[in-house]
Amino acid sequence: MNQDQWRRRALWLSALTIAYNLVEGLVSMAFGWADESMALFGFGADSFIEVASALLVLWKLLDHGNLSRERKATLAIGCLFLALAAGIAGGAVLQLAIRRHPPTTVPGLVISTLSLAFMVFLWRAKLLAAQALDSATLEADAACSLACIQLSAVLFSGSLLFLILPALWWVDAAAALGLAALIGKEGLGMVRAARSAAFTGGCGCGH
């Protein structure tokens, strides 16, 4: 493919990422709230912040990015990630303190399985496009998809373990703490990237 074809593919991949995360976020938060699963609810909330991050990448790919404004937006999104991580961690600690657990983790297992399959596809496709276009922005976007894979893996592991061994009532809270750590790491990376003199735009996850 030529550069224009790769560029169009990159735009489609970014749009697909946004659409998928919107649906995933709504479904995950709804099931997480209904089943009192802190891990699933936090996973869904993260999806909406990922949408904002993906919009920055799409904006950059369309060549409408103002670097100063993009830096501020990236910093703001990074701070939202940190706030979300703190909220999830607080909720998980409370869940442990009162020994509360969801009645089932089947929704989390199904959603995380779908997310793993889809995000692995997106991650590989974005890496190929980044190499073809020699784009740091797309490389950072691929890193964001890799972060989503890690989050999905944590949710999948926690959901599966609780399903097999329901006596382990603390598993959902432990998975939520794992998610909080990964989200916090992602947020810290975005904040550092936005404050760096070498900031070039994108989601910041690749820095």
Rank of each mutant, 00 (worst) to 15 (best):
W12D: 15
T104G: 11
A83Q: 09
A10K: 14
R8P: 02
L168R: 04
S157K: 10
I183N: 09
A176M: 01
L133H: 07
W169S: 08
A54T: 04
G206L: 03
C79M: 15
I18A: 08
E70R: 09
A85Y: 12
F156N: 13
F156R: 10
L114E: 07
A34G: 00
T200D: 15
A167F: 15
K72A: 11
A194C: 13
A39M: 01
S37F: 03
A129E: 03
V93S: 12
L26P: 01
T137Q: 06
M119Y: 12
L96H: 10
Q131K: 04
L116P: 01
S14K: 12
K185S: 15
A54S: 11
V154C: 12
F162D: 05
L168S: 09
Q3R: 13
I18V: 01
P102A: 10
L94P: 09
R100G: 09
L177V: 00
A194E: 10
S135Q: 05
V51Q: 05
A140C: 07
L26M: 09
A129Q: 03
A83F: 14
L26G: 08
S37L: 02
E50A: 01
L138C: 09
L67V: 04
S157Y: 10
G206V: 01
E186C: 15
S53Y: 09
A136M: 00
G42F: 08
D134R: 06
F118E: 03
L177W: 02
I183V: 11
L40W: 01
G201H: 10
L11W: 11
L161Q: 06
V57P: 03
G87E: 13
S14Q: 15
L61Y: 09
S47Q: 13
A117M: 00
G202L: 11
I88V: 03
V106W: 07
L56E: 05
W12Q: 14
C203Q: 12
I88G: 07
A193Q: 06
W59K: 03
S112T: 05
T113C: 07
S157A: 14
A85N: 07
A30K: 05
G202Y: 12
A54N: 07
G87D: 11
A19M: 04
L61P: 06
T105D: 08
M190A: 15
R9F: 05
W6R: 10
A198T: 13
S152M: 08
L168F: 10
L58N: 03
E24W: 03
W59R: 03
I49D: 14
R192E: 15
V23Y: 01
A198I: 04
R124V: 02
A15K: 08
C79L: 15
